[in-house]
């Protein structure tokens, strides 16, 4: 390919990368050293913003919550998706219908889903409390999103159970496994779950990496679920990093503080990238 064409074709992507990723990155680092409310003159405060953020227990909480979301993705969401994919892979009667049903929530906006679950958890007219009373466990009924202990798990549950996309990605990979291999394993007398564990799971590793990547990226910018369901409350126990950044800018007008939050989010993203990259390398080594 001629150099002229190469530059021409790569120009748009590089333009976007520079204007929307590299310049903003320097910009947020720059702003993070100032006290600024978005309107008045900026005041240089050195590393004061960093100190206030790192000593802000709400930030620590938001950081911790984001980690909890990522753990929920890796320990609940993805294994559940894999399990469903393996079960559907046995071509149980109606598996195509199940696949369609599981995937359905993925075409619905998260805002609507979160809103719906807000009502499910509602103290007086929520579906969950009504079901609990119905099975004689009325004493467990509570305002799920307003109580300290249950609010964070309650915001994560919808994300954890809507595994349609994850399942479909696993199933696509499962479909590429050759029949010879399956037959050979069957001849060796492998039973259903042995097939799953020893043949299928090792072979879907690339799909595991894809899913980890997609879900980690989602959790890092997860804003809709807590924003709609709890606005980060009660007492900030459900705030995520994205929500923290948003609140510091929109509600508190502390741009400098907000930017420090952003920088830590970016750093967390980079750390996770290195981790996932390692995982990918491990995959190739196999």
């Amino acid at each position: 390919m001629k150099k002229r064409y190469l530059i021409l074709y790569l120009f748009p992507a590089i333009f976007f990368a520079v204007v929307f990723f590299i310049v903003p990155l320097f910009y947020i680092v720059y702003i993070s050293f100032f006290e600024w409310n978005g309107l008045n003159a900026m005041k240089m405060v050195g590393i004061q913003n960093y100190i206030s953020v790192l000593t802000d227990k709400n930030f620590i909480l938001a950081f911790k919550n984001t980690i909890v979301w990522i753990l929920a993705a890796v320990c609940i969401h993805i294994p559940l998706g894999l399990m469903l994919a393996l079960l559907l892979n046995r071509k149980i009667c109606g598996w195509k219908v199940f696949r369609v049903l599981y995937f359905l929530p993925n075409v619905i906006s998260i805002t609507a889903l979160a809103f719906l679950w807000y009502f499910i958890y509602h103290k007086d007219m929520g579906l969950l409390n009504w079901l609990l009373e119905g099975i004689g466990m009325g004493r467990f009924a509570k305002g799920w999103l307003t109580e300290l202990g249950t609010a964070l798990p309650a915001t994560i549950v919808p994300f954890a159970i809507y595994v349609g996309l994850t399942t479909v990605i696993f199933m696509t990979q499962l479909a590429t496994i050759s029949d010879d291999l399956k037959e050979a394993a069957l001849l060796d007398g492998a039973k259903g779950w042995q097939m799953d564990l020893h043949i299928y799971v090792p072979l879907v590793k690339p799909a595991i990496v894809t899913n980890v990547m997609l879900n980690v990226a989602f959790c890092l910018k997860n804003f809709e679920y807590p924003f709609v369901m709890t606005s980060g409350g009660p007492v900030n126990t459900t705030t995520t990093l994205a929500l923290y950044i948003y609140k510091k800018m929109m509600n508190a007008n502390q741009y400098g503080i907000s930017m420090v939050g952003s920088i830590f989010t970016v750093l967390l993203g980079l750390c996770l990238m290195v981790l996932v990259n390692g995982l990918q390398r491990g995959k190739k080594g196999d």
């Binding site: 790569l10 992507a13 590089i14 990368a17 929307f20 990723f21 310049v23 903003p24 990155l25 910009y27 947020i28 702003i31 990547m213 980690v216 990226a217 890092l220 910018k221 804003f223 990093l241 994205a242 950044i245 948003y246 800018m249 741009y255 907000s258 930017m259 952003s262 920088i263 989010t265 970016v266 993203g269 980079l270 996770l272 990238m273 996932v276 990259n277």
Partner: peptide, 19 residues
Amino acid sequence: LSMMFYVGLFIPANAFMVP
């Protein structure tokens, strides 16, 4: 360049809300 696009996947765009 390829590395740069990969990094982009993990940088949550929300961090750039102010810029």
